[in-house]
Design a protein around this nucleic acid. Structure first.
Lengths: 343, 343
DNA sequence: TTGTAGGCGTTATCAG
DNA sequence: CTGATAACGCCTACAA
């Protein structure tokens, strides 16, 4: 096994320079009370001999790892990879390293990841929960031990926690209102599982817009699924085969909306002429579909930045109280939803 | 600063159970020569009191971190996020944690990341190089110290290194041959910068197909760029404004191909009727464009798995010799390139 | 089967 | 300004 052994330590430098190890340690980190001469000598020797500090030893001694952990359902999902990219960027800007784990939507895997992150003694943890996760129990180890923990996007429904979210309810309300104002009375809403807060909030926004128009919500125009392409197709097949196609279909992600678009095309139906279609999440493909998909753009880059900077604040200052930051999404109205002509 | 302090250690357990710390250490890791009774007692106490091993201390002592590092240009690029997802998955299956850093296409950032990874004493490193990186000099620290290092996708041109790549040259050859066989004599090739091996190889494949048809390659039908949407647009504007539009455009990624498609549409040109279009990389949007984009699908999931498993082999066995693994891509022929009718 | 002692490489404290 | 010493938590000869 290739090890980092045989590598030079501060003791080696100390011996060579006939000073103590503490002096080396200090010189290397610009401690004020080291003479300029010594410092220069030490740094010179260190560089010439390829000294590389052992962060592991330092971490152990300092009881601090300058490392944060990220747990997400998947890395290879556009929205999440954007957030992760942002987190990584700002974390390193602040001198933190980043450990990453995927839960792959499994609550058990998530739970194991939490243990691992704890055992690694990360200074803080950033989490977007799995689809199976209903509350914050999985994260008790961090909560009980008062180790900084910030949830983002998919967060537990508990405002005692640190959370960074977008305004799902408001966005969903706006989308629905727009569809209603364009004359669509029958809007079918394909949503994600309602054990997840973001989807509950989107449903609430949907319902609110309906109520305001004096319409009542009933679940004949509502379906929950895991929002995969496959599930989307199954639901699309069903809905678009009925005699009574809804005026508008509103999907809680663009992947599902795409399924509707594809099934529609297979059936010779036209969007937005036969029905309006609205997505959520603004995938890279959404703006290049024909027709261009109207959707909701979530501020991934900023959510990542805010989440990690918040986490680092908490790491640096023990006694901050928890808070929930809301970063607004923006509705991207494109070509897949239209005003009904007769209006 | 919230620390993990006050946390129970093997010494606390030892004291409570009136045995030595080594006994605890052994019991906890199923050392054979501990009595069943002691082991049970220890494990029970550990569980009830929420003992969590300090991996940092263990790492220092063992001179091994069970952690691998990943350095990539960007996390939020579909192909890379797929690879990273795969790496993370298999790494954890083998008990390794994953540290991640982006170079953001900067050689300097990449170099710093290498230092950081070394200082963290990762057991091995996985790298896809930045666009600015021309060779393996940035990674000398790992190479000289004989620490396992595996490159994937964007790799230095040196077969003394461990590398996992796809057959870029062959794929590019196949694509070009197909376009030629379909009657396209003038093929414009938009490639990435040729200081990167993958792009050199794609150019070679392109040229080889030309030569085999008795055609000569000249750079009037060739352009290198950074393959962004913006660069693609600029080149597309230029090419598609000429009186003499090439029979076919072949782009070294799908983003650039998309730019051509969009500019074509803006100019009232039709793909594939006015010119055939071929991409490379199979982005999520490619199969849902109109027309569906013909492209090359790279085996990201498998490349990630092979790279990390190779790395772990190297970590486990010091004296393996280096090798380059080639995992084939597959040509996805769709609707954006067509046989010329007159043929 | 268990205990003792020393050390992994650093940093903090105390002393000079 | 510099040095000696101990400690972070764990692992592993070596001893018993």
């Amino acid at each position: 096994m290739a090890k980092h052994k045989g590598h030079i330590t501060i003791h080696d430098i100390a011996k060579a320079l006939k000073v103590s190890a503490s002096t080396i340690s200090r010189a290397l980190k610009d401690d004020k009370r080291i003479s300029e001469a010594t410092r220069k000598k030490v740094i010179k020797y260190a560089q010439e001999n390829g000294y590389r500090p052992n962060v592991v030893a330092s971490n152990l001694r300092k009881q601090r790892t300058e490392t944060i952990g990220i747990i997400v359902p998947r890395i290879d999902r556009h929205f999440l990879s954007t957030i992760i990219s942002s987190i990584e960027h700002y974390a390193h800007m602040h001198g933190f390293s980043v450990l990453i784990t995927q839960s792959r939507e499994s609550m058990v895997a998530e739970s194991k990841a939490v243990l691992t992150m704890f055992n690694q003694r990360v200074d803080g943890l950033l989490v977007s929960t799995s689809l199976e996760t209903e509350d914050e129990d999985n994260f008790d180890l961090f909560i009980k031990n008062n180790i900084p923990l910030v949830f983002f996007d998919r967060v537990p429904d508990n405002d005692k926690l640190n959370r960074v979210v977008t305004n799902d309810r408001e966005s969903s309300y706006q989308v629905t209102r727009r569809l209603l104002n364009n004359g669509h009375k029958n809007i079918f809403f394909v949503n994600g599982p309602s054990n997840i807060l973001v989807f509950r909030n989107r449903l609430k926004g949907f319902q609110q817009a309906l109520f305001e128009k004096g319409l009542t919500w009933d679940d004949t125009l509502y379906k929950e699924c895991d929002l995969t392409q496959a599930s989307g197709r199954i639901i699309a097949q069903e809905i678009l085969s009925s005699d009574n196609i809804p005026n508008a279909i509103y999907c809680s992600n663009d992947t599902t909306a795409l399924s509707f678009l594809q099934v529609a095309q297979e059936k010779g139906l036209s969007v937005p002429n036969d029905f309006s279609l609205h997505g959520f999440s603004d995938e890279p493909f959404s703006s290049v579909l024909t027709p261009k998909l109207s959707t909701v753009r979530q501020p991934g880059e900023e959510m990542g930045r805010v989440a990690v900077e918040r986490l680092i604040e908490l790491i640096e200052d023990d006694k901050l109280s928890s808070e929930t930051v809301v970063i607004p999404s923006v509705i991207k109205s494109r070509d897949s939803d239209l005003k009904i002509k007769s209006i």
